[in-house]
Amino acid sequence: MQMDPPANRPTHHFNFHGNGAEYFGIWIVNLLLSIVTLGIYSAWAKVRTNNYFYGNTELDGDRFEYLATPMQILIGRIIAIVAVILWMTLSQMSPKLAIGLALLLALAFPVLAARNLRFDARMTRFRNLRFDFAGSYVGAYVVFLLFPILAYGLIALCFGLVAWGASMHSVAIIVVGVIAAIGAGIFGYGLTMAAVASYVINGYRYGTSKFKGKIAISAYVKIALGAATALVLSMLLIALAMLPIGLSELVQAAMQGASMEDIQQDRQLAMTLAGMMFGGYLALLLAGLLVFAFVKVKIRNYVLGQVQLENKLQLGSNLTVAGFLGLVVTNLLLTAFTLGLGRPWVEVRTARYLANHTQVSGDMGFTEARDHNGGRDNAIADEMVDAFDLNIAVI
């Protein structure tokens, strides 16, 4: 759903002005003080980090602001840590109790997710207007709980068909069940992810102005099919490339009259096979990174391409798979060869790359937006989501 744009509609690109060396100073101080204070300073560290990244992100000559205070973060973090410790302690006392607590957490997750989105939105300001999130709790339960249960249930039914085929010793039923399970998994992924993206996008506000976007399940299904195809083809190519090497070495040793015991004790052959396995592992790693880059780029470009603000502004993203893959690989190498000290440069490079490939089309001076009068909220849900690793990723 695109706007009907005038021929000369302006396009405004995001810009990120931070640099690795400057951020390294903030990052290392945050790290050291968090260690010295046994984690207490981490609340101030989070605010300083967000202030740096928000403050260095520019759109049409103005920069974003992060409004949360360290005390908001600290109170939320303390409550989240106490909840995690309580959960771990009670889980050790009884497996049944652990299951019950996990179910309670699952039931609470939609509320935590909605409040987390609201907090993050309200803590962000641009041109003196705060963002907001107005998604309902009912909608949160539908997209974060009901749809995933339906998806997993559909997959379980397909595996039940596989089990039935195995009990009947029917290869045909097993094959049909496996194919159905794969199809159900892809459809369930598309259904759930499209629902989450739609809920988040249409719940966001800039002041009182509404974001909107029509997200299609079919788009996510196509992306999932493309990723699955790429992964399967990559694995086949790797197998076809590695197999002849191993077979040729074994055949050559056998032709020279070597026995199985000799072959097992042949160091050169063992090193060749070990090298082949290592090469295969690296190839699989690269294939996995390629699939990750493909999914990330396609989803981000598609989702942002659907987002509008009051039919006045159109968001867009033009990432490329090759460019993003190059960023991911170089970031991994930078992190590995600096033993983690290159992390600030990784974060800055990523922020700059994403900003440079994100744009807004339309008149940035439209005047319909007004600031909302929603409260500043607390950071409890935000920290609970982080503590239990329940973060929501739409793009």
Score class of each variant (00 low, 15 high):
1 M>A: 02
6 P>L: 05
8 N>C: 01
13 H>C: 09
14 F>M: 09
15 N>T: 12
17 H>R: 06
21 A>P: 10
27 W>Q: 05
29 V>Y: 09
35 I>L: 15
37 T>G: 15
41 Y>Q: 03
42 S>K: 03
47 V>K: 04
49 T>F: 12
52 Y>G: 04
55 G>P: 13
55 G>C: 03
60 D>T: 13
61 G>C: 01
66 Y>W: 10
77 R>V: 09
77 R>N: 15
81 I>L: 15
84 V>C: 05
86 L>H: 12
90 L>T: 14
96 K>C: 09
100 G>V: 14
103 L>D: 12
105 L>P: 02
109 F>C: 03
115 R>G: 02
123 M>V: 14
126 F>P: 05
130 R>L: 01
133 F>Y: 06
141 Y>E: 08
142 V>C: 04
146 L>D: 00
149 I>F: 07
151 A>I: 09
153 G>I: 04
157 L>D: 09
165 G>F: 06
166 A>P: 02
166 A>Q: 08
167 S>C: 11
169 H>V: 03
170 S>V: 07
173 I>N: 01
176 V>E: 01
179 I>T: 08
183 G>V: 05
185 G>D: 07
185 G>E: 02
188 G>K: 04
193 M>L: 14
200 V>P: 03
201 I>A: 11
211 F>G: 12
211 F>R: 10
213 G>D: 12
215 I>F: 12
216 A>F: 15
217 I>H: 08
218 S>E: 02
222 K>Q: 12
239 A>L: 14
241 A>F: 13
245 I>A: 03
246 G>K: 12
247 L>N: 15
254 A>T: 13
255 M>F: 08
258 A>K: 11
267 R>V: 15
267 R>Q: 15
270 A>C: 14
275 G>Q: 07
276 M>K: 11
281 Y>E: 06
281 Y>C: 00
291 V>L: 05
291 V>G: 06
296 K>G: 03
297 V>E: 07
299 I>L: 06
301 N>L: 10
304 L>R: 13
304 L>I: 14
310 E>R: 09
311 N>L: 03
311 N>R: 09
320 T>H: 06
320 T>W: 04
321 V>W: 15
327 L>K: 08
328 V>E: 01
330 T>V: 05
332 L>W: 00
334 L>R: 04
340 G>E: 02
341 L>M: 10
348 V>Q: 11
351 A>F: 01
354 L>I: 13
356 N>W: 12
357 H>P: 10
360 V>Y: 13
362 G>W: 07
365 G>V: 03
366 F>R: 10
366 F>K: 11
370 R>H: 13
370 R>Q: 14
373 N>M: 01
374 G>K: 05
380 I>C: 04
381 A>L: 11
384 M>F: 05
389 D>A: 10
389 D>Q: 14
393 A>H: 00
